[in-house]
Design a binder for these strands. Structure first.
Lengths: 349, 349
DNA sequence: ATAAATAACGTTAGCGCTAACGTTAATGAT
DNA sequence: ATCATTAACGTTAGCGCTAACGTTATTTAT
């Protein structure tokens, strides 16, 4: 049980070669004969050599570590981070996460500077502040953003929010709903705007009820969804279905609907967006639009690694397609469409 | 908009002092006159100096970064990580997270080696593998564990699981329940064992029904809780209340109870453990035992920082007290205690 | 057979920083 | 007036590693 781990110098000494040869061998670079390479790798493995990434980076090389800046407040973000970790590891890259707390408003500059001392590139996941990165074109460090960051000069990996929202409305319309309420998201976010735009477009296209009262404002959070749905439930003619701009809003809405003595989906259908894991925990399980988490993280890592290798990013903007996940919170509208009362029991679907 | 950030050498040059003096100034160490110190700090600030932690650590100093090894799969863990971040920042320490995916079984050694090159100490959060760390007494790097890790030779920050489970049973007993089911957790975990022990002790102490059928095994996950509760519901004489060893089990149990056409809390009371955020999202909101997240993370950081400063850890084991969070899933048992049927309709809830 | 190209190495210098040990001048003790 | 002490600095060396440029043998072209 050795106390301290061996350095490259020790490997080199044991193998009877220079440090550079050892370095080339362990980094899989040319300039070493096959036998020597094998020998060095064997020794490195025997001695439990772990390269010092900090030193690698310090001396101008690659550390083979990628950084992630994220707010870990939502499971959605955490799952994205996990996906990035796997994708990175598959490419022989380690991942380190800088957790941004929403409470502190530390400027992004120093954080990136800190990370740049260790990592070769950074993936930024910022669901809540669109202009966060706009300022810093550090240029030194490859950066890729996920989800938002429209104005930032970095490649962006995004879900096609417009398309996703269309799927949601199409699903509701196909079930027979003509009067659909919409709980909007945080207006400052491009994702929220895209979803709202799709809602309005589809409503016009399908000739659904276009009552302005049917659009209420949420904030992407549970509480906002609750209040918004309350307003919808108090309308003279409430909608038969509600599209919430994200799952947490939908969860809040569900409570408000229940509070108004109506049930989901018998009286009101409800659909969310994201497919966070809570969506499957609530009762009834929430029908929603799934963001392709795995694809997103893989795309982000691939783009970043390309940039690290000096290849120009394949695209400034990669749009991934979401999909409908039909669960239990949506159904056909009640037959007596005008019924505002709890009505109709026993409808199994 | 400068491209690359200044180094200590530049600060020193501009200030007309040696690097060491600049180093001492920015690191708040003695040996610099007040005027020079102020001057240097001003210049450093002007130039946007960000210390290179990797280099600091390389040269034998402190990087003022702490590492966290965690599985980000549960919100509980994420929230703990967030807490550690705040606590660290309050002490002027940055935090970097190494996200352990449950899929990969990478040995902990190299991960710690990697982190040790950057951070001054590590906090390990391991809800699911108790013996993970037992092997590595790296000794070089201060380590603190949270939640589990009983056999590891490091200071541990834990919730008093025994006390928490007692609170849960006391709460149920106070409501009038005499026949309480228990969904046990993962036997391999000390936390699960402590909770089970408290259940048995309290049951004996309060003279509750001690039918062995009332104890069923879960696995700390939703699915396990579901199956366990199903078995309880099929008993000839089901319990009037269930204590699930954690919240996710309780959420699963809730679905099983509902499936058996009984309602929570009218027919069956249900209490969980942890107070993860889902507990507040389910309907009815789950009564549970809250783990003192903030205190835990603060204690972990304080202990770690003490160890980093060379002070012996204040205690090998810090036990924090959980508290009861009474929400909607618990109530007095139905009056006709023997009723095995769905019973009691007309309840608006 | 000889110059030119290549492969397989080794050397030097330096990334940004800090321990550890100088050096210098000012202060205090006797 | 002389020596010890202290505060405020500066110098040297080195953490672990890798570019960039040697150096040497070996091959290939002509």
């Amino acid at each position: 049980m050795k106390k301290t781990n061996p350095t490259l110098a020790e490997i080199a000494r044991v193998a009877g070669v220079s440090m550079m040869t050892a370095s080339r061998a362990v980094n899989n670079q040319p300039g070493v004969s096959d036998e020597k390479r094998a020998e060095i790798l064997r020794i490195a493995d025997d001695l439990g050599y772990v390269a010092n990434r900090a030193a690698q980076r310090l001396s101008g090389g690659r550390s083979h570590v990628i950084g992630v800046i994220a707010q870990l407040h939502t499971l959605f973000t955490s799952e994205l981070v996990l996906g990035i970790g796997s994708a990175g590891r598959a490419a022989n890259y380690e991942m380190l996460v800088y957790s941004l707390s929403d409470a502190d408003n530390r400027p992004p500059g120093p954080i990136l500077d800190l990370l740049s001392q260790i990592v070769d590139g950074v993936i930024v996941i910022l669901p809540f502040q669109s202009d966060y990165l706009a300022s810093l074109s550090n240029a030194k460090l490859p950066i890729v953003t996920i989800d938002e960051g429209n104005d930032a000069p970095f490649p962006k990996i995004m879900t096609d929010n417009y398309q996703g929202a269309r799927l949601a409305i199409e699903h509701l319309a196909a079930l027979g709903h003509r009067r659909i309420g919409f709980i909007a998201g945080n207006e400052g976010l491009a994702s929220a705007r895209d979803r709202a735009r799709a809602f309005h477009d589809m409503r016009a296209q399908l000739g659904l009820d276009a009552d302005p009262e049917l659009v209420v404002h949420g904030n992407f959070m549970q509480q906002g969804g609750f209040l918004a749905a309350q307003r919808l439930m108090r309308l003279a003619e409430p909608p038969t279905a509600i599209f919430a701009a994200n799952d947490m809003s939908a969860v809040g809405a569900m409570a408000a609907i229940r509070e108004s003595k109506r049930s989901v989906p018998q009286d009101i259908s409800l659909i969310g967006f994201d497919d966070v894991s809570v969506a499957n925990h609530v009762h009834p399980a929430l029908t929603t639009i799934r963001q392709p988490l795995t694809q997103m993280s893989r795309a982000a890592v691939n783009t970043l690694l390309a940039m690290i290798s000096g290849i120009a990013p394949p695209a400034e903007r990669i749009l991934l397609s979401p999909e409908l996940v039909a669960r239990e919170s949506t159904a056909a509208p009640p037959l007596e469409k005008l019924s505002q009362k709890p009505g109709r029991k026993g409808m199994t679907r």
